[in-house]
């Protein structure tokens, strides 16, 4: 296939806080004009702190929530303006792995019913026997024995539940999976197992991932490219090695410098940001980061920077991006 698998253009989501009969108040711009491409077979990691709009973006791409504007081109089809029925058909090709391994599996349905949900909704199994065989095969692919089929989720640990969730996500044979912090609710020892499973599946099934995370160590392990979000916008995007080695946006630099470093010999040069994340319902003028940026100048308050290339397929949204590529210890 040529060209990107997924192409997001100027995607926007405004949440209106409505109070009963009252007029809608100024909306929260959770996703504020985001554009990027995802190439087939890659893993694009989306990082950023809580509340920056990562999960909202993931849900917008799958059209689990309606967009306020923009385009999501998936396999050449614009999902934003697609009707209910064709959109449902497209869901065969794109799936989601959820953050909460407990809430994302219905407590009243057996493992077989949960895993087979996409199979049932798209009518992929010709008979009950075929359905059981498909479920057994899917469970096997995620490292669970088929004997768990008739059990209920409450008997499983977080890691096992996440495997069940992954089996459900691959059941209809998607090409693209949005993984919304799939390991952040798991123990560290189990995280590695689930990450490895996701990588194995990516290889064997040719999957493309949008991997939402806030753990930079996990991202470093799984990502092909990294996109950094701040207040509903992508501030930096580029190949993993380049973003980690030479972050251009001051926010990325601060984020990377805050990640714990296991090597005690490397001196710590942590960039401490002052202040809190501004409310997305009242975002700062110009560059949204200027209120906390160590290198902000007058121009940053007036003019919002666009993403611009800084070489090697690497883009940053900072007026001074090329002027200060400070390497951060890794």
């Amino acid at each position: 296939m040529t060209g990107p698998l997924l192409s997001v253009r100027d995607l926007r989501k405004v949440f209106n806080a409505q109070a009963g009969f009252g007029r809608p108040s100024a909306g929260v711009r959770a996703v504020d004009g985001i554009s990027f491409d995802v190439e087939p077979g890659e893993t694009l990691a989306l990082v950023g702190e809580s509340g920056c709009g990562k999960s909202t973006l993931g849900r917008l791409i799958l059209q689990l929530i309606p967009a306020s504007g923009g385009q999501v081109m998936f396999e050449g089809v614009d999902l934003v303006h697609l009707g209910t029925r064709p959109l449902r058909e497209m869901r065969r090709r794109m799936q989601m792995v959820f953050q909460d391994p407990f809430g994302s599996l219905s407590p009243r349905r057996s493992v077989a019913d949960i895993v087979a949900e996409p199979i049932d909704s798209f009518g992929l199994a010709p008979s009950r026997k075929a359905r059981r065989e498909m479920v057994a095969d899917l469970l096997h692919q995620v490292g669970l024995p088929s004997s768990v089929m008739d059990r209920y989720p409450r008997q499983f640990s977080g890691g096992q539940r996440q495997r069940i969730g992954i089996a459900r996500a691959i059941a209809a044979g998607p090409s693209f999976i949005v993984a919304d912090e799939p390991v952040s609710a798991l123990d560290v020892s189990v995280q590695a197992q689930v990450i490895n499973l996701m990588q194995d599946l990516q290889e064997s099934r040719g999957l493309t991932y949008l991997f939402i995370a806030h753990d930079l160590a996990v991202v470093r392990h799984i990502a092909t490219r990294v996109a950094v979000m701040y207040l509903g916008r992508i501030v930096e995007i580029g190949p993993k090695a380049r973003v980690y080695a030479a972050p251009h946006h001051p926010y990325t630099q601060a984020l990377l410098s805050a990640a714990p470093n296991p090597d005690p010999d490397i001196p710590k040069r942590q960039i401490i940001l002052t202040g809190d994340v501004p409310s997305p319902s009242n975002a700062p003028s110009g560059c949204a980061f200027h209120t906390r940026c160590p290198i902000a100048q007058a121009r940053c308050r007036m003019e919002a920077p666009e993403l611009r290339p800084v070489g090697g397929g690497h883009q940053a949204a900072c007026h001074f991006a090329t002027d200060h590529p400070i390497p951060v210890p890794s």
Binding site: M96, G103, P118
Partner: peptide, 12 residues
């Protein structure tokens, strides 16, 4: 509940 969202994502 996330499992309802999962059902929507599964095309139910």
């Amino acid at each position: 509940e996330p499992y309802v969202e999962a059902a929507v994502a599964s095309g139910v």
